[in-house]
């Protein structure tokens, strides 16, 4: 199988402000969010990053999306290095996280055209893609309504549709169903499965076991910034449920820091 994403020893440490030190109840001035993380994602698979809050999932994905730089290590996505070719990497991926917001002032239609221009989507293809993506997420009826007047679920759908304007081969979604109602969450899951059928390579991060079990081919469990295990679901679970296996791994790797 073709290795489409190759992550090599990624590490990231953040400085903690006094406020953050207080929140984290620590006197340490630095916090290692991700430590020497390596994994591979093969073309056409859905790879899940599973871990508790604060494990380093989002930081890992932000580094892959070139939003932040790693302190050590690097990654190659579809032949482009995140350190040396960040713009090319961004052209090849769709990245979505709850941190990324769309301006409430604009309508889905306007934003779709705006981002299409930024991704250099050929003019003749924009309308076709808009119809297809807005159709998938049921945005058509709200296409000319300002985002400020849309529900949270609809905003999330608009974000998903807009992140796909350039129909990239690599999709990186951080907690894609977080905060969504069951109906919207199902639309998103079905969409991801449909993308897989189209041969796209997908990484999702989540702490929802059922989502991993339902759609992922392989997964990596991150605990305290380190990869505890990374393999196919069958091998990770070894006859146990994913949930039970996760807690077992957590006990082994958390070093008594169970929340």
């Amino acid at each position: 199988m073709n290795e489409l994403i190759k992550v090599n020893g990624l590490s990231k440490t953040f400085s903690l402000s006094a406020k953050q030190q207080k929140l984290e109840k620590t006197k340490e001035k630095k916090k290692t969010a991700v430590h020497n993380l390596s994994f591979t994602v093969y073309e056409g698979e859905i790879f899940g990053l599973l871990g508790p809050n604060g494990a380093g999932k989002t930081t890992t994905l932000r580094m892959l999306a070139t939003l932040i730089s790693p302190d050590e290590g690097d990654a190659v996505i579809d032949g482009c290095n995140i350190r040396t070719e960040p713009e090319q990497v961004r052209e090849k991926i769709a990245f979505l996280t709850s941190e990324l917001k769309l301006e409430d002032f604009f309508t889905p239609n306007y934003l779709f055209h705006f981002f299409s221009e930024l991704y250099h989507v050929p003019e003749e293809a924009v309308e076709e893609r808009r119809k297809m993506l807005f159709g998938v997420f049921g945005i058509d009826a709200f296409a000319d309504v300002k985002l400020a007047n849309l529900s949270t679920g609809m905003k999330q759908k608009v974000s998903l549709a807009i992140s796909m304007v350039h129909l990239p081969n690599v999709i990186i979604f951080d907690e894609p169903t977080n905060g969504l109602d069951v109906l919207t969450a199902k639309v998103v899951t079905d969409f991801l499965l449909d993308l897989k059928k189209q041969g796209k390579t997908i990484i999702i991060s989540t702490h929802i076991f059922s989502l991993i079990e339902k759609i992922c081919d392989r997964a990596g469990v991150i605990i305290n910034g380190k990869m505890a295990v990374c393999d196919s679901l069958d091998k990770i679970c070894a006859g146990m449920s994913l949930e039970d296996r996760f807690f077992e791994l957590y006990q082994q790797n958390a070093g008594g820091e169970a929340e």
Binding site: T66, L67, E87, R90, L100, L118, H120
Partner: peptide, 17 residues
């Protein structure tokens, strides 16, 4: 304002310099 609302990050993940 864009930093505060988180909309600047959306621009930064596009290939635009």
């Amino acid at each position: 304002g864009e930093k505060e609302r988180g909309t600047i990050a959306t621009l930064l993940v596009t290939p635009v310099r």
